[in-house]
Design a binder for these strands. Structure first.
Length: 286
DNA sequence: ATACTTTCCTGGGCGC
DNA sequence: TGCGCCCAGGAAAGTA
């Protein structure tokens, strides 16, 4: 499931492979993948003849800078890009194909069809609301302690729900949320406005650190994630809690537990991070 | 305003 | 073996 580190790795691969290429035509095999206001027909028409200058990233969004358009792509759960020679048989789950002038295809594959493409006029690319409203990138300069503390103080939601909120900090998904909370030794159920100063700082530092290390490792491959070059990530060997249910905590040996917080599978060490029972269950048990 | 629920999707895993 | 059921989950729309 691509989070910031995986999307960043995909971005680098795309820049290596298709920066400078020109789109000659586009096939869309699943219309819902193209978000309003543009129909998939309009999407296909507008991209003809557009050159891909560079690919940027903001949070989990990829931004293809073209001549007249910014094409914005979100991979959601399972989206991936491949670059192949035109004419090669389509792999299963190929939903959008950008034919390039140099006899190659940039192809978008997505088992679950959750990914989305949007088109924004290039001079309005800063006005695209989903990106405009994102929180800061999780870097030391942009993701300030003051801002984070302010956001946490305003809500009693679980801290895990808050760091998954892209308006608070951009790019953190389920894997890196669990890993960051473990590194900072904070219970995922703890209400955000109950974190003290030390915890807030530890968590902010942990998010920055975990994301940076994962970017360096080329992301995490749990199930199917591959970058544009077809390579798996390497961060999965550094995971401490995600997917480690019943395995020994690397710090204290206590078995890692899995529960549900904010409707997401959540892995944590009940010794290092404290028992979930310390906090009132707000979620309906079903 | 906040906070929670539903929707979108398919493949994999499980019970019977 | 095969059918039905449930789960995984990011973001946006919907509801109270």
């Amino acid at each position: 499931m691509p989070e910031l580190p995986e999307v960043e790795t995909v971005r680098k691969g795309l820049n290596q492979l298709v920066a400078g290429a020109t789109i000659t035509s586009v096939d869309v095999f699943w219309n819902r993948m193209i978000t309003p206001p543009f129909s998939s027909e309009r999407f296909q028409e507008e991209l003809i003849g557009e050159q891909i200058h560079t690919i940027e990233r903001r949070g989990k969004y990829l931004i293809f800078l073209l001549d007249n358009w910014a094409m914005i792509s979100h991979l959601r759960m399972e989206g991936k890009f491949t670059v192949t020679k035109t004419g090669e048989p389509y792999q299963k789950h190929t939903h959008v194909v950008f034919h390039l002038a140099d006899n190659r295809d940039l192809r978008y594959l997505d088992v679950r069809k959750f990914g989305r493409f949007s088109l924004v006029p290039i001079d309005k690319k800063e006005k695209y609301a989903p990106i405009e409203n994102l929180g800061p990138e999780p870097t030391p300069i942009q993701f300030t302690l003051d801002n984070f503390h302010d956001k946490l103080s305003r809500t009693g939601r679980s801290i895990k729900a808050v760091i998954l909120d892209q308006h608070v900090v951009a790019g953190v998904g389920n894997i890196y949320a669990d890993e960051s909370l473990f590194q900072a030794k904070i219970n995922p159920m703890k209400p955000a406005n109950q974190l003290n100063e030390g915890e807030t700082k530890r968590l902010r530092d942990a998010i920055i650190d975990v994301i940076a290390n994962a970017v360096e490792a080329g992301g995490t491959t749990i199930r199917t994630y591959k970058n544009t070059l077809g390579e798996a990530g390497k961060f999965q060997v550094k995971l401490n809690v995600y997917g480690k249910t019943n395995q020994a905590c690397p710090r204290c040996g206590t078995p890692i537990e899995k529960t549900k917080v904010a409707q997401r599978g959540t892995h944590y060490c009940p010794h290092c991070q404290g028992s979930i029972d310390l906090y009132e269950k707000k979620e309906p048990k079903g």
